[in-house]
Simulated assay, not measured.
Amino acid sequence: MPPKHGPWRAQVVLHDVAERQIDAMNDADREILDAAIVRLSLDHRIGARGDGKLEWEYRDDRVRIVYIPTVIGTIVLVAYVEVG
Rank of each mutant, 00 (worst) to 15 (best):
R64T: 14
I72N: 11
V13T: 13
A48P: 00
E82R: 10
L40G: 07
R45A: 06
L40E: 02
H44I: 00
Q21E: 13
L40V: 04
V17T: 08
I68V: 04
I72G: 01
Q11N: 13
E19T: 14
D34Y: 15
K4E: 03
K4F: 04
P3S: 09
E82D: 13
A36E: 04
E31M: 07
V12T: 07
M25G: 02
P69M: 02
L77M: 15
A79R: 06
I46M: 14
A24V: 00
M1K: 00
V38G: 03
R45H: 12
R62K: 12
G47A: 07
D27Y: 11
A48D: 09
E57H: 09
D34T: 14
L54R: 12
H15M: 04
Q11T: 08
Q21K: 12
G84S: 13
E82Y: 03
P69T: 06
Y58R: 06
V63M: 11
A10K: 01
M25P: 00
Q11Y: 13
G73A: 01
A24N: 09
T70W: 01
G52T: 12
I32Y: 05
T74K: 15
I46G: 10
H5G: 05
A36L: 08
I72E: 04
I22S: 04
G52K: 13
A18L: 00
A10C: 15
I46W: 09
H44S: 05
A28I: 11
R64H: 07
D34R: 09
L40K: 08
V78S: 15
E57K: 07
R9C: 10
W8N: 06
G84D: 12
T70V: 02
H15V: 10
L40S: 09
